[in-house]
Amino acid sequence: MGFSHSHLLGIEHLKQSDIVAVLDLAESYVDLNRRQEKHADALSGLTQINMFFENSTRTQASFEIAGKRLGADVMNMSMGTTSLEKGESLIDTALTLNAMHPDLLVVRHPHSGAVNLLAEKVNCAVLNAGDGRHEHPTQALLDALTIRRARGRLHRLNIAICGDIAHSRVARSNILLFGRMESRIHLVGPSTLIPAGAADWGVEIHEDMQEGLRGADVVMMLRLQRERMDGGFIPSEREYFHRFGLDAEKLGFAKPDAIVMHPGPMNRGVEIDGTIADDINRSVIQEQVEMGVAVRMAAMDLLARNLETPPSGSAV
């Protein structure tokens, strides 16, 4: 069964077979990316616009490289606050860009659901690069690819997602993805950072790392935003690290071969101990970045095949 979507707005809309299709194609791009000659022409002649309403270096760079390696003309637009200052609405901005006939629109926005709204108004393929605290589908897909390569499968794994679940779109997309793949998900964090109603999501919730990490195949750490550390959600950075920061002792509760992941950028010494992050036997954090480019290439390639007029260069 083929990947039939015209946008990638979230994991919520993907079937198991869609996820596998993206990951399988991404594998071939991993190989391509490791060659000296890294060019393919799947997106040749197409225009890709990266529209980031929120600052991002890593994700934007990853999408840019992915597009360029596939031959697209890539334009980066840092929307920042300027368009908001001018009072232009999100929809007007989208319509303006739409008039320039992009084929792929990569969007990050601080409001949940904003990318869905935008996708309704344009005629190109829209990729969600993170909307508020809703979804970040390419992050979940790259996490899945990393895990599949490290553990050989995606089903029947114990996956611990630790830290600031409440504000994390990465957590939501991963919960949806690994739920669909029939893995067990454990959410671990202080109760102030576990969202209300999370118990309805078919996950297990723990407020203790020892309990939450027991038997884990994958330990996924989340970034704790600086602005949450000032007594609003947790008392202090050091108390947080003591209770929830990943160090060798806490990792000891997981399976001996459990892998450690982090979507980056890391706060060393807050949510993760630097030596764990750098331990090449346990940490796959660098590999996540590498898989990110491959997964984004695959996602854009698949979406481009579903554009109304397929580009001449695309391999169907």
């Binding site: 949940s112 659901g113 109603g197």
Partner: peptide, 15 residues
């Protein structure tokens, strides 16, 4: 309203 649905949608909630 706070709950599983709104949290999954990532919408700020009130109890």
């Amino acid at each position: 309203t706070s709950g599983g649905f709104a949290s999954l949608r990532g919408i700020p909630t009130v109890s």
